[in-house]
Amino acid sequence: MAINKNSNAYIIIYTVVMVVIVGTLLAFLATSLKDKQAANVLNEKKVSIMKAFGSAEENFDDVVTMGYITDGKFAEVDKADAVAVDAVFAKLADLKGLVAAENDFPIFKYEKDGAVKYVAPMAGKGLWGDIWGYVSLNVVEGKVQISGIVMDHAGETPGLGAEIATETWQKKFEGKAIYDAEGKFAVRMQKGGAQNEHQVDAITGGTKTCDGVNAMLASSIGKYEAFLASLTTAVEAAPAEADESAEEVANVEPTKVEEE
């Protein structure tokens, strides 16, 4: 008996069998590659954070501790606790939710030879789409300044706004004190060139993207304001160490001073 290939029954059976085979195959593939893909995503975040710290050659797991800023205080997460560590990175997966949150902002702390730097995640909007990044902050001579920054974007104009993702522009942020003498947030990309020590040259032709970067810096770093203030006041409250080198003063830990 010849099969009528255009009968409804044949077509329905054909499609059902096809879908089951294809579905099984893809489900199997997705499950078996899932761990590897998740590891890639996690590794990318770690590399970005190390880049912001300015020491891409070092291993994240060796030198970085992580935690949350809750009510202006740093609460460390035990690195051995895999669930808690995953929770911190899970927060980074949703940068927009993170910036909208009211408390418990994730932060990464780099500590080596007495030097302490913190990395905070950032998220915002450029001209065409999302922009995001990590900013590394430290305290030098009682001022909070940017020690490094990495930024990326979803679809800014190549050669113009997209320049924010290049090292050339990111380098310009290094060493900029983020608050001015009155304590106002002062770091920004300035059209027409930097006018003072807090400003960075804006990208010609990328004004809208630069505006987005300014908003991102202000809103994201703003979340950590209380914590950053505690870092600098701690330094001021320790006059005994004021004469020592700027490097050391900068690296006094706030908690240590409070104990004194």
Partner: peptide, 17 residues
């Protein structure tokens, strides 16, 4: 074996996979 009436759909499924 492909029914000619759903030929394009079958092609799409194969390609998409």
């Amino acid at each position: 074996g492909v029914p000619s009436r759903i030929r394009i759909i079958v092609q799409l499924v194969v390609i998409a996979t």
